[in-house]
């Protein structure tokens, strides 16, 4: 039955031999990295295949920025914000841009589970944690790319195209994307039905956005809302972006966002917090995802 002389024994060839002496750890890691790359590649392909969808997702923050922003600009005095309302709104809209695709990663985990695609992924000879890491990396990159598109509008709200400022904002966007993606995955990993995820988001997202300091300063809110905002990852993301701007463009500095009892946390501590929250969420999600059936 076998045909050893065939030029391409499509189904009989041994795949990469695992037992080759001395190369197991390196080969193993390389295979895991290829799997991560495969999932990132899938997200990028989907992004480029769904241009209309992407454009529509970007439309909402742009509308907010220019319609809500210019509409309210005259009503809100500069003195209460430290800057014009559009410029004030900008970090919040960056956050909104980034948050949508990041959350989509969670929804896709559930729909992939429903459609059976996830099972195909689970068949791959890699750790399950690797698959989750790949999804997270893909979501982070796609969100960051969309954030960068909105970042291109910085000039329209009066921010200079300063390379260092853009680099800082890019870093902030990437970090925030990562944290939200990881949180979305942690939320989605235990759910089987997308409706439940949508419902949870519907209940949770609007308060999170309102308490992020993206639309209006948190300091004007009552004390309990302060406490909630201090536990809101989006608020840290917005605050981080706001302070990146303040670092490079001091005259655009706005009123403080996050304030702890000891005062404003240092910008590096804020970044570290976002990172730790993201990593913790990802580890927890991986742990749950890796449970054998």
């Amino acid at each position: 039955m076998t045909a050893p002389s065939l030029p391409d024994p499509a189904a009989t060839r041994t795949p990469d031999t695992p037992g080759a002496p001395g190369r197991e750890p390196g080969a193993r890691l390389r295979h895991e990295l290829r799997a991560v790359h495969a999932l990132v590649y899938r997200d990028l392909l989907r992004l480029s295949a769904q241009r209309t969808h992407t454009a529509l997702m970007l439309l909402q923050p742009v509308l907010y920025l220019f319609i809500l922003g210019s509409g309210l600009a005259d009503l809100i005095p500069r003195s209460s914000l430290g800057t014009g309302y559009q410029a004030y709104l900008f970090p919040g809209m960056l956050m909104m841009t980034v948050q949508t695709p990041a959350i989509m990663v969670g929804i896709r985990l559930i729909t992939d589970r429903q459609s059976g695609y996830l099972r195909e992924l689970l068949m791959a000879p890699v750790h399950r944690a690797t698959l989750l890491l790949g999804s997270c990396a893909g979501g982070t990159i796609v969100s960051t790319i969309q954030g960068v598109v909105l970042l291109g509008l910085a000039g329209a709200v009066g921010l200079p195209y300063d390379p260092l400022l853009l680099a800082l904002l890019l870093g902030g966007i990437a970090l925030t994307s990562f944290t939200i993606t990881a949180l979305a995955l942690a939320l989605a990993v235990g759910l089987n039905r997308p409706e439940v995820f949508h419902m949870l988001l519907g209940v949770v997202m609007t308060p999170l956005l309102f308490l992020s300091g993206g639309f209006f300063p948190i300091e004007n809110l009552p004390g309990w809302a302060h406490a909630l905002a201090a536990a809101n990852p989006l608020a840290y993301g917005v605050d981080l972006l706001r302070r990146c701007i303040a670092l490079r463009v001091p005259d655009q500095a706005t009123t403080a966002g996050i304030e702890w009892s000891a005062g404003q946390p240092p910008i590096l501590l804020e970044s570290a917090l976002l990172l730790v929250v993201g990593v913790t969420a990802l580890l927890w999600a991986s742990h749950r995802f890796s449970r054998p059936e």
Partner: peptide, 26 residues
Amino acid sequence: FQHSALDPDLTAEQNLHIHARLYGLR
């Protein structure tokens, strides 16, 4: 699988490429 799944938004070739990479092919 009985109810197998492909990514409907990607092309045939892209689906295969992603899968091959998941299996660690260069």
